[in-house]
Design a protein around this nucleic acid. Structure first.
Ligand code: MN
Ligand code: MN
Ligand code: ZN
Ligand code: ZN
Lengths: 160, 160
DNA sequence: CCCCTTATTGCAACGTGTTGCGATAGAATC
DNA sequence: GATTCTATCGCAACACGTTGCAATAAGGGG
């Protein structure tokens, strides 16, 4: 348990061009290696705008390189998270969903009535995070925050 | 997508004795059947105080009845949730964790620093749920709420 | 450019759930 | 208790990830 490897931030704001060079440097600095697989996986993740599950990413990677295997893709996703380039949250079923760090930090709300998914940006989340800290002392990760409940519409429908 | 079968509350406060009879009636009312497997799974869940993953429950059920299979256990857990007898939330890895409804409603907080897990009762959660509704219109399910972040201690350590 | 060390890969096996299907067994009716 | 209807069961196959291990290849040094 407890915390794994330290995170070293790779980037401030990422432009597609400098991304590879920066990542490559960060990886080498850790005594690790930059490979074609890793490059490809980063490219696929960058092209998958918004959110993508592990299985979806595996499928897209294999379209470009059929020799790639799930284990490599998942291990690379872990590496990218350690470097702070990728993040994940969990869908209502618990499955991990990945996105690039360039997206602004946000949480997710899933309505169990209509299935709608709403994003929660930092501004909207601020009072919520503050309430959490006030009630519990915890500082919650907005990136990882994923709530289930009923949206305003479904709540009104239910009453009627 | 959207909402599955209506939930019919089976119980108010549950004592072990009346539980079976009430469940049996609720199941029959839906045109379904009460079986030895279901009885056993309820018994195991009742004996598993606190939280248990699906795999743990499967293992315990099979100790009493080796012929029981995972599919039956998971399908029964789904049924118990529909009836409102069981609930689940998700660990930090997204895995479902089950508990009986007799436990009072509560959420969970997982510290990614020290691994500590803290429960969040209804009273402590009230201002948080209120902030969520205020910011988003959503009414969040406390049962299903599972946050990741840093506890007060780990946050202080990190600063030092 | 070639060697050498060792990080990375693919593979195979495993863990955890889910689903379709034919066999089994609740339980309502007679 | 026997009959009948069909919900539930076990099974087998599948989907999604994870892990240990031996083969491969990145990349630093000669
Ligand atoms: Mn869930
Ligand atoms: Mn997670
Ligand atoms: Zn809704
Ligand atoms: Zn902590």
């Amino acid at each position: 348990m407890a915390n794994g490897a330290q995170k070293e931030r790779v980037s401030g704001s990422l432009t597609a061009g400098s991304l590879t060079a920066r990542l490559q440097a960060a990886v080498r600095e850790r005594g690790q290696r930059w490979t074609e697989q890793r490059q490809l996986i980063v490219d696929v993740l960058a092209a998958s705008d918004g959110h993508a599950t592990g299985a979806e990413l595996v499928e897209r990677v294999r379209q470009d390189d059929p020799s790639a295997t799930p284990s490599t893709v998942y291990r690379t996703l872990d590496l990218l998270e350690e470097l702070g380039l990728a993040r994940h949250h969990h869908g209502p079923d618990g499955r991990e969903t990945y996105h690039l760090e360039e997206t602004t930090e946000h949480g997710h709300l899933h309505c169990r009535g209509c299935g709608a998914e709403q994003e929660l940006d930092a501004a909207a989340a601020a009072p919520i995070l503050k309430a959490i800290t006030g009630a519990t002392g915890f500082s919650a990760d907005l990136d990882h925050l994923s709530l289930q409940g009923l949206c305003a519409t479904c709540r009104a429908d239910q009453k009627g």
